[in-house]
Design a binder for these strands. Structure first.
Length: 108
DNA sequence: GATCTGACTCATG
DNA sequence: ACATGAGCCAGAT
């Protein structure tokens, strides 16, 4: 039984998020789809909450809503901090305060 | 081990 | 355009 066989859905989610290059963002549903389970989009978010953090190799700040919006109130210190991190990586934001998915959504 | 909950998303009112 | 409901299923209590 390899680690992947474990229930560790979270662990697999981390694996996907870890592959998101800097200056790119992915949606929860997109990551879930990469796991082969597009219905578990919620758990991808949960995994981020429980994630070891950027220092742990999980740039959860690169994971956003399908709309390009950020998690309100649950992002590390607030969506503003998340936005700051993304902008620092070169991600552009729309006047609406959302990520420009049209230009920065990550494609495997 | 049943119940509740939830960083989502889609459909409907 | 915004609010609410429902579906999804694994983790926490």
């Amino acid at each position: 039984m390899s680690v992947s066989t474990r229930t560790g859905f979270f662990q697999r989610a981390y694996g996907i998020v870890r592959q998101i290059p800097a200056g790119r963002v992915a949606t929860y549903g997109q990551i879930a789809a990469m796991l082969g389970e597009p219905r578990k989009a919620r758990f991808v978010g949960f995994a981020m909450h429980s994630s070891p953090g950027v220092a742990g190799g999980v740039p959860c700040h690169r994971v956003v809503f399908k709309d390009g919006a950020l998690a309100p109130g649950f992002a590390f210190g607030g969506p503003e901090a998340q936005r700051a991190l993304l902008e620092d990586e070169g991600v552009g934001f729309l006047p609406d305060g959302r990520v420009d998915m049209h230009a920065f959504q990550w494609e495997a």
